[in-house]
Structures are given as structure tokens and as C-alpha cells.
């Protein structure tokens, strides 16, 4: 009985140590990847290439889901608000939920599934096929050549995607609210404008998505770089990227919301 307890405590210690050392390795990895001045002549084309892979290829899913989420919000919101005779507030309701919450969060979740997993799988595969190793032997640092452009592409494109998501969502709500449910177009926009605050809502939303972008891209590139270089290792790493970054995004979202909007 006593031995069992000792065993459990030892297991707990082992787990803690491995989590801490994992965090340490991930931080060192990030630091060594970021603390250098990139060479613009070679770095920029790589960055564009990754912006394409990470950003452009995620556009379709972001636009389609943004449109539908905006439309659903408008439909749901209308049926609730009309009960209070407050359907004029549909515009701000949709805009605020998109800008403050759904834009950053849903984009982050989609981004983790679409781009994060692809990053992990790609880097993991490069590791498994010794491409990273061979790069190192060619005196090219894979951190700088492979990781850095992907990291920055993720950091830049996710806030942009979140902005597109919110904008498309609001257009979708406009479509449903004005064209279908017959709200006045002028009221829709003007009430929205009087309620939505640029610094408080738009900028805070962008800051949120910037934080999410950092977390997701960091996890994605690190998981790929650190994976066990077998097909099973890659699939585990890819799953871990999606699960861990989604959970972290939702947790961080609460913290950020509490800091930004709770009074």
C-alpha cells in the first residue's frame, strides 16, 4: 500500500519533470529560432512561399465558415431580439460577437486544424526523411531556413484571416438581416457604428488573434521539429498540435476576455 503511494508520487514527479523539460526545450527552440536577423534577400521569398501555404490556402475555409457563422448569428439573434422589440440591435450584436469572440476564436480553431496540423506534419516529415539533418550537414541551419519563415507566416496570416472572417461574417449577417428579414439597411450600419468601438473592439480582437497565432504557430512548428521521426510519431505530433493548441486557445481566450472586456 505504502509502496503504491510512493510509486504514484514518483509517477507524478516524472510527469512534472517531463512537462517542465518539454516547456524548456520549446522555449529554447523558439528563442534560438527568433533571435537572429534574417537575410532579406533569401528570407523574403521563403516567407512569401509560406504565406501562401499557411495563409492563402486557409482562405476558403475561413471565408465560407465566416459567411455561415455570420448568417446563423443574424438568424438566431433576430429571433431573440425581436421578442424584446430590439431587432435594431442586431447589427451591433453580430458585430460585437464576431469582433470580440468568434472572429479570433473560430479562426484560431480552424487555423489550428487547417494550417497548424499541416505545419507539424510537413516539418515532421522533413525530419523523418532526414531533410532537416541533411540541411544541417550542408551548413544550413534548419531553424532559420525552415522554422523561421513558417513561424512568421503563421504570426502574420492568422490576424489577417481573423479580420477577413469577421468582415465576411458581418456581410453574411447583413445579407440575412437586411435582405431576408427586412431590417433597414441604414439602421443596421448606424446602430452598429454607434455601438462598436474601434480601439476597444476591433483592435482588441486583432490583439487576441495575434496571441492565438503565436500560440498555435509555436506549438505547430515545435511539435513538428520535436516529433519522433516515424510515421506514428508524426501522426501523434499532428494530433497533439490540434488538441493542445485548441485547448490553449480556448483557455487563453477566457483570460484575454477577462483582461480586455470585463469591468
Amino acid at each position: 500500500m505504502f509502496n503504491l503511494l510512493i510509486d504514484k508520487i514518483q509517477q507524478l514527479g516524472h510527469k512534472t519533470l517531463s512537462i517542465v523539460s518539454g516547456l524548456g526545450r520549446a522555449s529554447l527552440f523558439l528563442l534560438s529560432a527568433l533571435f537572429h536577423i534574417p537575410n532579406p534577400r533569401k528570407g523574403f521569398p521563403l516567407f512569401i512561399q509560406q504565406l501562401y501555404a499557411v495563409g492563402v490556402l486557409s482562405l476558403i475555409i475561413i471565408i465560407v465558415s465566416g459567411l455561415f457563422i455570420g448568417m446563423v448569428l443574424a438568424l438566431q439573434g433576430y429571433t431573440i431580439l425581436v421578442g424584446y422589440g430590439a431587432e435594431a440591435s442586431l447589427g451591433p450584436m453580430v458585430a460585437l460577437s464576431l469582433l470580440r469572440e468568434l472572429g479570433p476564436v473560430v479562426t484560431a480553431l480552424l487555423f489550428a486544424g487547417r494550417a497548424g496540423s499541416a505545419l507539424t506534419a510537413e516539418i515532421g516529415l522533413m525530419k523523418a526523411t532526414e531533410q532537416l539533418s541533411s540541411m544541417e550537414m550542408m551548413a544550413v541551419d534548419p531553424l532559420r531556413r525552415v522554422i523561421v519563415p513558417r513561424f512568421w507566416a503563421g504570426m502574420i496570416s492568422m490576424p489577417l484571416l481573423a479580420a477577413i472572417f469577421s468582415a465576411v461574417g458581418i456581410l453574411g449577417a447583413y445579407l440575412v438581416g437586411v435582405d431576408w428579414l427586412g431590417l433597414d439597411s441604414g439602421t443596421f450600419w448606424s446602430v452598429m457604428q454607434s455601438e462598436v468601438n474601434f480601439r476597444g473592439d476591433v483592435v482588441n480582437g486583432i490583439i487576441k488573434s495575434g496571441v492565438f497565432a503565436f500560440v498555435i504557430t509555436w506549438i505547430a512548428v515545435y511539435k513538428g521539429y520535436d516529433c519522433v521521426p516515424t510515421s506514428e510519431g508524426i501522426s501523434r505530433a499532428t494530433t497533439a498540435t490540434v488538441v493542445e493548441s485548441s485547448l490553449l486557445v480556448l483557455g487563453l481566450d477566457f483570460v484575454l476576455t477577462a483582461l480586455m472586456f470585463a469591468r
Binding site: T129, E130, Q131, M137, M138, A139
Partner: peptide
């Protein structure tokens, strides 16, 4: 120093 040596990997390790 690595610029003076190179390695042929078993898998080839070409950039895919």
C-alpha cells in the same frame, strides 16, 4: 567546417 564536408544520407534526403 561543415561547408567542407557533405553527407549522402541513406534515404537521399532530397527536399521534396
Amino acid at each position: 567546417t561543415r561547408k567542407r564536408m557533405s553527407m549522402l544520407f541513406q534515404s537521399g534526403a532530397l527536399f521534396s
